[in-house]
């Protein structure tokens, strides 16, 4: 006789789904019928479902598989818990933002707009110009700093620089804004506002992210490739440019995109440095600009009467930001798929 339990009984295929579904249905019914808080009901439903699945499985299938099912329920619940706020946020922004997500919003500025109508064209231009400038400044500096740290840096200097980059990664964004403001005040006097100042503030936030992500990607490039290049008589700088960087390119681009996505929604430092304005200004070296996050903020913070059109524009601006970030992520994924190389040890 076989020692393997070939014919061991197991739950039907709908088994693990039925108790959670029943518990959720019960929770919904209780939420409608009574006034118990929804959160309590949700937690109760998860606990009850886990208990029922465990007990049922233990009776039918035995202890080991029961624990397996219990952990599956717990892990799935944790995942759902993490996703619920995201879905809720996306839903809210799409629902409220689509009201003004129209052509006028993308073609007109907020100049001389009182009440309904008007758009955020000036803010979209502001965001693109400022973020573009910040990226143009941060990417070369960040990548070259990462190359120094990973390929050239040694000893104490490297350790200190790495430490400071780590500290800079965690710098509060308002501090970056104040830094840029103080820096420009030295040259242009107090109270100056311009797009370039906002770009400097964003660069302070971007550079450490680009350095860290690029450094990680350079670390993944196997030493064997560097040695193969050296053994061909290729100088070190050429090895870095022609072998190491191309191998890490897809990852570096992804890191840059993540850094852009991180700063494109920054509000606080831009509020200080670029100020607010309702008309179009595409020149970052002169006068106020109003990027999208600041636009959303000012529409929401200083609405007119009635406030509804202002709130609708704020939501539409939020939706536009999410679309921009998603577009950047898609581009990064495409680049990764197109140029990504399989790096092996």
């Amino acid at each position: 006789m076989s020692t393997l339990d070939v014919m061991r009984p197991s739950l039907p295929s709908w088994g693990p789904w039925a108790p959670p579904a029943a518990a959720l249905a019960l929770a919904v019914a209780l939420a409608i019928a009574t006034d118990i808080a929804a959160g309590v009901l949700l937690v109760g439903a998860v606990v009850a479902a886990a208990a029922v699945v465990y007990a049922w499985s233990r009776v039918v299938e035995g202890g080991r598989r029961a624990v397996d099912r219990l952990v599956t329920v717990l892990v799935s619940s944790a995942f759902a818990l993490a996703v619920i706020p995201l879905v809720s946020l996306l839903w809210t922004v799409i629902a409220k933002g689509s009201e003004r997500f129209d052509w006028t919003f993308f073609s007109e500025t907020g100049r001389n707009v009182v009440g309904a109508g008007g758009g955020a064209w000036h803010a979209i231009v502001g965001t693109l110009v400022i973020t573009g400038l910040a990226t143009a400044a941060s990417v070369p500096i960040g990548i070259m700093a990462a190359i120094y740290l990973q390929e050239y840096g040694q000893g104490r200097l490297k350790r200190w620089l790495t430490f400071f980059v780590d500290v800079m990664t965690g710098i509060p964004s308002i501090v970056a804004g104040l830094f840029a403001f103080a820096l420009f005040a030295i040259f242009f006097g107090p109270g100056v506002r311009m797009g370039a100042m906002g770009a400097v503030a964003l660069s302070v936030l971007m550079i450490p992210i680009v350095v860290r992500s690029t450094e990680e990607m350079l670390k993944v490039v196997p030493d064997g490739l560097r040695e193969a290049s050296y053994a061909l008589g290729v100088p070190k700088w050429r090895t870095v440019v022609s072998v190491v960087l191309p191998t890490a390119l897809a990852g570096i681009v992804t890191g840059v995109m993540v850094a852009v996505a991180r700063v494109v929604g920054e509000t606080a430092p831009l509020l200080i440095t670029t100020g607010t304005i309702t008309s179009l200004n595409a020149n970052p070296l002169s006068g106020r600009m109003e990027p999208l996050p600041v636009y959303a903020y000012s529409q929401y913070k200083h609405p007119g009467v009635p406030p509804e059109p202002y709130f609708a524009r704020a939501w539409a601006a939020a939706l536009t930001l999410i679309v921009i970030v998603m577009a950047l992520n898609l581009v990064a994924r495409l680049i990764h798929r197109r140029f990504g190389t399989e790096v092996r040890g």
């Binding site: 040695e227 193969a228 061909l232 008589g233 100088p235 090895t239 022609s242």
Partner: peptide
């Protein structure tokens, strides 16, 4: 030098791998 683990350059074609030494120097 030839190494223990084969280490062709992953971003390069077969042709470019062979030509790498001449191109990069």
């Amino acid at each position: 030098m030839v190494f223990q683990a084969p280490n062709p350059f992953p971003t390069m074609s077969i042709y470019d791998n062979v030509a790498a030494g001449l191109k990069l120097t």
